[in-house]
Design a protein around this nucleic acid. Structure first.
Lengths: 255, 255
DNA sequence: CGCATGTTTGACGATACTCAATGTGTGTGG
DNA sequence: CCACACACATTGAGTATCGTCAAACATGCG
């Protein structure tokens, strides 16, 4: 359980922003070629980091934000009683570390859930570019805004949704995000444990497990350890409570 | 219940950013005098708007963000089943509307809880200034970051705290915010109803009411309708679950 | 003054947590 | 390569917290 601090050493000559297949997700801006090149120049690509490594730690000085190239990580804070509270999961093409921009230090820690490659974007350099490139600036604003909206959807989830609705919502969100980066929307591998899912959704592990089996019995999905197949997106959507169709909120009876 | 859309008409010659006592809260930046003047030029001060008025509506094009000069408002979204979900309460010196910057439209509505005066900051003009003034840019970043951190504290609250802890946390947060703007930290008037508090904290109205009386019985506070006096900040802190001292989590027994 | 809205209090019940035991997988070391 | 240990996952039983329903009470607005 000795989680090492990830030490980024730049790859000799890896990929570039210009050719990165994730660029449309990472910073969806319409930049000039030379602007992209400028951006590319300040970005440091890491060699793969290992599962369990800490990318940054709560309270550390915020020197960089990170874009994920491959793999996945979780961000979390520690509660007063030393428990870890997961704030979010991050996948390729997503930016991590934005939340700390105001304080100059990371308000939470980031830990890899599997072998992961990131792009490091030094904030000082980025800040210069922001002054020169309005589009980049707006793009970053959009990323911040998206972060806020995501959090607010979570607020909604935590304050109004039942356990079933939370899990359904969670799975559908994952589905959407996987789809956005070219993976299957219905079949994927959960990179987080049931424990982490429960922590994130404000549920006990046991509840998560029970609902997985309940959904399985109802043929909404197929579970095999961490492998998941969503069998009935429409029904999941119904259960999630986000559907506009009248969901009248009846919960699942066992099949 | 006919909530009018607030229509901002600029005051002939009201206050200026240069002399605003809230400027340190609103945009806590170290700007040059001429920079502040530039900012002041694009800000439109409203005449007082009435309780119940809508400042902006979810889905509307985001033309401006707002700074509150006096009064208070709540932001909320509508759930799929038409219920209102409160996202936050805003007080003088705070910025509203930031969350929509990415999409170009407001992701939620804002409704006044009492007679309120705001400064309107047209986004197009602001964006120009952002390119010219690095400090202003960082300040706005900080505001966005703060919004994110606040949301994440709420996530923590909703996913891990009991009803008692939520109410205690809520009251202490209010206390801090009031203090920051020069009001009493222990005596204030709740501008929101019990219903709105419950909605915001993910609790039923009845639960909110019960806990208020429970706190009252335990001499943690004094309630008289919307008037509140916090009698034992230390104890409230203890109950809130945020204290670092060992809280061993025993709930209040009636006095 | 009366109706509407907001608040308080009580009784009851459901959802999800805790505790506990068993089952399953994963990684490590012999 | 197997065996063991450890973390993770599932399932069950009992319970507590909080939500729902209901009614009385207070407050405020027209």
């Amino acid at each position: 359980m000795s989680s090492k601090i990830a030490h980024i050493s730049s790859m000799p000559n890896s990929a570039h922003c210009q050719t990165c297949s994730l660029s449309s997700l990472c910073l969806p801006v319409s930049l000039q070629d030379d602007e992209i090149e400028q951006l590319d120049n300040i970005v440091e690509k890491s060699r793969p980091l290992h599962k369990g490594d800490i990318l940054f730690r709560q309270g550390e000085e915020l020197r960089s934000i990170f874009a994920i190239r491959a793999g996945s990580l979780k961000t979390f804070t520690l509660t007063h009683d030393g428990e870890e509270q997961i704030n979010g999961f991050y996948f390729p093409g997503e930016l991590v570390g934005l939340a700390g921009l105001d304080e100059g230090e990371y308000p939470m820690s980031a830990k890899l859930m599997e072998t992961t490659t990131v792009c490091e974007i030094p904030y000082a350099r980025l800040d210069e570019l922001l002054g020169q490139m309005p589009e980049l600036r707006r793009s970053l604003m959009r990323s911040l805004g998206r972060e806020i909206r995501d959090d607010q959807q979570m607020l909604m989830l935590l304050s109004r949704k039942t356990a079933e609705q939370r899990i359904a919502t969670f799975l559908l969100k994952l589905s959407t995000r996987y789809q956005a980066r070219g993976y299957s929307a219905t079949q994927f591998r959960l990179s987080m444990s049931r424990n982490e899912i429960g922590n994130y959704l404000g549920l006990a592990v046991e509840t998560v497990s029970r609902i997985f089996t309940r959904f399985s019995s109802a043929a909404l999905l197929r579970v095999e350890g961490k492998e998941i197949e969503l069998l009935d997106l429409a029904a999941l959507n119904e259960v999630s409570g986000d559907s506009h169709g009248e969901g009248c909120g009846h919960s699942l009876k066992l099949g």
